[in-house]
Design a protein around this nucleic acid. Sequence first.
DNA 1: CTTCACCTTGACCATACGGTCAGGAAATGA
DNA 2: TCATTTCCTGACCGTATGGTCAAGGTGAAG
Lengths: 215, 215
Amino acid sequence: MSGDAQISRLKPGRRTDIRRENERAILEAAEKVFAEAGFGGATMQLIADMAGLPKANLHYYFATKEDLYRRVVQQIFEIWLDAASSFDDAPGPVEGIGAYIDAKMDISRTHPHGSKVWASEVMHGAPVIQDYLETTLRDWTDGRIAVIQRWIDEGKMAPINPRHLLYMLWATTQHYADFGHQIQTLNDGRPLSDKEWRDAKASVKDMVLRGIGAI
Amino acid sequence: MSGDAQISRLKPGRRTDIRRENERAILEAAEKVFAEAGFGGATMQLIADMAGLPKANLHYYFATKEDLYRRVVQQIFEIWLDAASSFDDAPGPVEGIGAYIDAKMDISRTHPHGSKVWASEVMHGAPVIQDYLETTLRDWTDGRIAVIQRWIDEGKMAPINPRHLLYMLWATTQHYADFGHQIQTLNDGRPLSDKEWRDAKASVKDMVLRGIGAI
DNA sequence: CTTCACCTTGACCATACGGTCAGGAAATGA
DNA sequence: TCATTTCCTGACCGTATGGTCAAGGTGAAG
């Protein structure tokens, strides 16, 4: 068993490749369609077309529309959590929160669809990922609140409410993805350039770090 | 004609009352359903049930689902703009931006559904209110940027980028409506109490006003 | 070559949805 | 009272959607 597994990992075999590649293409298309149309507005047909597969093939890899949606949301949540590591091992708020803002702003730029799907899911009452909110997210939040409180106790920042600081960080960074269309419209219809993204990141970091008395 | 109009305004007449009351009930139900299910997930039947009317009656007052949706979004946008007046006639950022944060946080608490519908609309590319973004919102934004820039020039706040300050204000205040479910989950499943809302408002104002060097 | 597990897909189905309509009820004004 | 406008609604329709299925294709192993 384990020998076979190793061999198939080294020499993947076309079968495995097909499955992996098709699932990847479907998930990528699904993320985009769910983000642009919402769960209710998205259709399996549209996802199939975008993935370049017949609709029946989608149901071969993902039993139901809800299963596919669940996978998309979970995928995003994991990216989300990975970025959270920026927070850890930082000596103080300037480094920790600064790196976290950088990471989340980068995700907003590279994964705008995922951010929208997440936002939509939460706005509709988190019917699919409620358990994640109650376990993983709550634990993560509590841990980060403790870190921030420690920084406050050590006099490295002003005594603000750590919970509302986290909300502000989430809101502000994800805004650039979720409301990207509005931002683009107010930017004369053009997407933010590299320079404008750097300005955005710098502005957010400046306002937040100054706002918590870290600089 | 004008005489009749005046009379019917003073003594409304049952006809007018019926229309106004039914339209109000439909719009209220629609706002909630659109917020909870998105445009695609909402059904006219569900809105009708929630408004206590047969579905066919909805189509008597609103020709299509899209017409009804459009009215809901417009309604929200107007509430939005009214709050913006907090910004004007303020001697400086502490009063102006402070009042704006107060007003927007209050709206997030009293009109969470509307905020979600707006967010959903923008996230999906603003198919219905794109023209509002390009005209009314852009003009409003430009005006407010000018005001902020004046405050900066007068030395009343730090030289931050006014545009990104506005984005932060929108993001942070609306987060309490759009992500209210997540906030409630992280609050042990309970909605924010009066005191917790006061804390939230105070925290946001404190961080923002300190962040822009106004206090 | 044969076998077998895995993949592919056109055709099909039941359902639910937005929207229509005809005919009746109710209110208003003359 | 009668005529007219407005309002109400059950029944209906065409369409689009999520999902199914049976039949066939394809590559790897023996």
